[in-house]
Design a protein around this nucleic acid. Structure first.
Lengths: 336, 336
DNA sequence: TTTATTTACGAAACCGTTTTCGTAACCCGC
DNA sequence: GCGGGTTACGAAAACGGTTTCGTAAATAAA
């Protein structure tokens, strides 16, 4: 019924607890013969060590924390896969914590991590996050933390990002080349690094092509999915409505398509659309969606690999390990 | 730098460790005045308790394990949201473990859980799982485990499922009513409960409507996404090809659409398609996809709520708590 | 006043590991 | 045959909390 512990296992073998522990860890102090006896007995009695006792004694948890805004999002779920693939290989567990885009939640989670629950953290900040005290607090306790995708620039640690400015520029320029002259930018946060940079890329492209930047074309959407649809619809109903839309995050794809359908605006005839998105279904949407696709899986993998590099060594300067990867513009029918 | 522990906190307060611990837990043994002093000091010194020490002593982890085949799947990511919403409310953490559809992985994970890493488990079995010894082993150690969606029938525990037989029947009948007389069924596993029941529903509908069941129309797909596309394509190239397709899982949506496009088969003109799927983008696919949609979030929520009910009481017969929820047929253009 | 009870706290055991340190027994060379 | 080194193991101290139990002082009951 109850799980057997090392003490009972030792008694069964008529060995001391320490000998059993060493044998299980393949210590050189233990004879080959004894090791085999111990291993056999452990298997026979189905001994499974208590991870909390090990963690307490060893001061490490064999867990890494992944802090993200949400899980039902292609970018994040693919990134999780990348992270998990290397964590699994290293024998680590992945503790996924969702902030639901709330700064308060994010602070609570990082605070808890100060207690030693995880050995390291991979994080993409919430849409509300503009300060970084909570992050620095955790880092100063000796818990390595790496930011990916949504980063805080003023935290001195590794940041794995994509070329957001360039992507915003490319998306916008693509629309211009396709004939758009009134282009909207769907924003998601005032503070988020990715939002700001993508917006800057958008603005630069607008300027470089002698178009006028217009505040009414920059729409700040919300975390509440239900509110985004009316916002976008309203934008598409204004006089002199945009004939091109850059959506800076995946979750705005649905409301854009829905609003266009409701207003009987044809994509790409009336409005051309490009989204930052990792949706697998982008090629089979109606019309197929032109996307800026981020290497989500790879980013997760790279971030996790880097984290494990730090966990090995102690004096490792993460701040020097930042990396910017390229996103890809995948042209499809929505900008045709 | 390092985190402060309760001993240091006690020394700072000139109190004993036990008094501090009790004060932090709002014990009646401690005076209100002392409690306030302790709370103040804990906040000032930023004391965060070590969760592993608590877990070790208290023999409970405040973690629940969620074992699923993959995370980049709408059904599972929505279910995670449902689970997380109640876990968060109860002050629990969610440890997500991916089997990647591998029985070996699943066994390893559950074995590890025997060590006490989690207080309870919510699980959807892998596509390879046909035995249940590993599940019963865990349950017999006193770790409550609830199955959801993909269940093992011979495990005596609560199972939260949808009406797979009825859904398979309804999907197929819908195709028949739309004029299909040669209907393919895309299967994903020989052993999986959901597959078997959905298939049975399909066969029953076929029989009830005087169509002939044909083995060549039942395609067993694989876990390897790349192999499914040629399989499906081949099926659609055979003479007397199906004019209707029931896909029993979400991940087969893409290859079906791609194969039809490659073969220049019009959906729904040449082939009508209905998928078991929770894809948010189903309404904006080209053509929009008729789906059997499962209440994924609710299932997660129900399963988690039930788990916490067990974690409270000890003598609780989970086997009596199974629940079957209805999926919804959402008719769209792919079967028009 | 004496006894019983309550209040508020501290000492120490305990949870299940890992690791340090100590120590017999054996082997080796000289 | 004697120091020095290795081999193979055990005792006990950690790790950082929680909980049981004991107890002095204060209060209540008799």
């Amino acid at each position: 019924m109850k799980n057997i512990n090392i003490k009972e296992l030792a008694r069964e073998l008529k060995l001391s607890v320490s000998t059993v522990s060493k044998a299980l860890h393949d210590s050189h102090e233990i004879s080959e013969e004894t090791k085999q006896r111990v291993l056999k007995a452990a298997a026979r009695l189905n001994y499974v060590p208590n991870p909390y006792a090990s963690s307490l004694r060893g001061r490490k948890s064999k867990n890494i924390g992944v802090v993200i805004p949400e899980v039902a999002d292609s970018f994040f779920s693919l990134a999780i896969n990348g992270i998990e693939s290397v964590a699994h290989e290293k024998g680590y567990h992945v503790l996924i914590c969702l902030t639901h885009e709330s700064f308060e939640n994010e602070k609570t989670i990082l605070k808890e991590f100060q207690g030693g629950r995880v050995d390291g953290v991979l994080m993409s900040v919430s849409g509300e996050t503009s300060q970084s005290g909570h992050i620095n607090d955790l880092i100063s306790k000796g818990v390595p933390l790496i930011l990916f995708d949504r980063v805080c620039e003023d935290v001195e640690t590794a940041k794995i990002t994509t070329d957001d400015f360039a992507s915003g520029y490319r998306a916008t320029e693509h629309l211009i080349q396709q004939g758009c002259d009134e282009i909207a930018f769907l924003d998601i946060s005032k503070s988020l690094s990715i939002s700001r940079k993508r917006l800057e890329g958008y603005l630069q492209a607008i300027g470089d092509h002698q178009l006028k930047a217009d505040k009414k074309n920059i729409i700040l959407c919300t975390n509440d999915t239900n509110k985004n649809y009316p916002l976008i619809k309203k934008m598409l109903q204004q006089e002199n409505r945009p004939n091109g839309v850059v959506s800076s995050v995946e979750k705005l794809t649905m409301p854009v398509y829905k609003a266009c359908a409701a207003l009987k605006l044809k994509i790409p005839g009336d409005v051309k659309v490009v989204c930052f998105s990792n949706l697998e279904t982008a090629p089979i949407l109606n019309p197929s969606l032109t996307t800026i696709t981020q290497p989500a899986f790879e980013m997760g993998k790279i971030a996790a690999t880097l984290l494990f590099k730090v966990l090995g060594k102690s004096n490792f300067d993460l701040a020097k390990e930042s990396l910017v990867i390229s996103s890809a513009l995948e042209v499809r029918d929505s900008t045709g």
